[in-house]
Design a protein around this nucleic acid. Structure first.
Length: 250
DNA sequence: GTATCCCGCCAGAGT
DNA sequence: ACTCTGGCGGGATAC
């Protein structure tokens, strides 16, 4: 009897199937309100405990994250600078306050407040739709437009304007929103399709005076013209005649 | 019908 | 070879 393998014994039980194989128990409702809980409990935990580093696998188990989902959470938080990945299986928690810093830096690096920056220059092509890049871009939309609320549909339409991957972009934006709501960056949604930036962040990123330009009123009304201009372009990306159903293309 | 988001396949990257 | 990562988007569910 050579190697073959009647049945390869799961040598590494620790990994794989942390959650993947659990839905054996009949149908058990339909969804997992646990994902939300997992996220907030995780944030809670990690904000208090000041440990040098955490293991991805152990966190998954501890908070019952489906592995695939935890990667999403980590990527979003890492993009925002709250987490730093050390290596496979471990990361450090830098803190929620790092988010402000991270975005502030992006604002500078990308000349978001430069009147000569147009929407197209600020949001270039994007073939791979990574959740981390979408996270940053989405937040940048609020800042570039100086808006506290945006329609997720239009944002998806706008961000996918070149790659034609509306469906995928929209799905991912929803994932990002879902996570960021539980992290406190976005507020709970009330109006369908509308996503609102939490006050603290809105006032920090969107109500600060723009460098060169005159002080601006924090009202949607009296924004500098270049902001108005961007908004005009942005709202060109029509209110999709709905369709999560029309997969990509078109 | 539309808005949300659950879910996991499978292709690449990493070791 | 293997495992780890995460792009991708079908399709179920909620409203």
């Amino acid at each position: 009897m050579a190697e073959t393998s009647i049945f390869p014994i799961p040598q590494d039980v620790r990994k794989m199937f942390i959650e993947e194989s659990r839905p054996k128990e009949e149908k058990k409702s339909k969804n997992s309100e646990s994902f939300q809980e997992s996220i907030s409990q995780f944030i809670q935990f990690v904000s208090h405990n000041k440990e040098s580093s955490y293991g991805i696998l152990s966190i998954c188990e501890k908070f019952r994250f489906q592995r695939r989902r935890f990667y999403d959470v980590v990527n979003v938080l890492e993009a925002l600078g709250a987490i730093n990945r050390i290596n496979t299986d471990s990361f450090t928690w830098l803190g929620m306050d790092k988010i402000i810093t991270t975005i502030d830096q992006k604002i500078k690096d990308n000349s978001i407040d430069d009147p000569s920056s147009t929407l197209d220059s600020l949001f270039p092509q994007e073939n791979k739709i990574t959740i981390s890049r979408l996270t940053i871009r989405f937040i940048m939309c609020f800042i570039a437009l100086r808006k506290q609320s945006l329609s997720i549909q239009i944002v998806a339409k706008f961000l996918s304007r070149s790659n034609k991957r509306f469906k995928t972009t929209l799905c991912k934006l929803y994932q990002v929103v879902y996570i960021l709501i539980n992290v406190g960056i976005f507020e709970k949604r009330t109006i369908p399709s509308e996503v609102t930036l939490a006050d603290v962040y809105y006032s920090h990123w969107c109500q600060n005076p723009i460098s060169g330009i005159q002080q601006l009123a924090n009202l949607d009304k009296e924004a500098p013209e270049f902001i108005i201009q961007r908004r005009t372009v942005f709202y060109t990306y029509l209110p999709t005649r709905t369709s999560t159903y029309l997969s990509d293309s078109d």
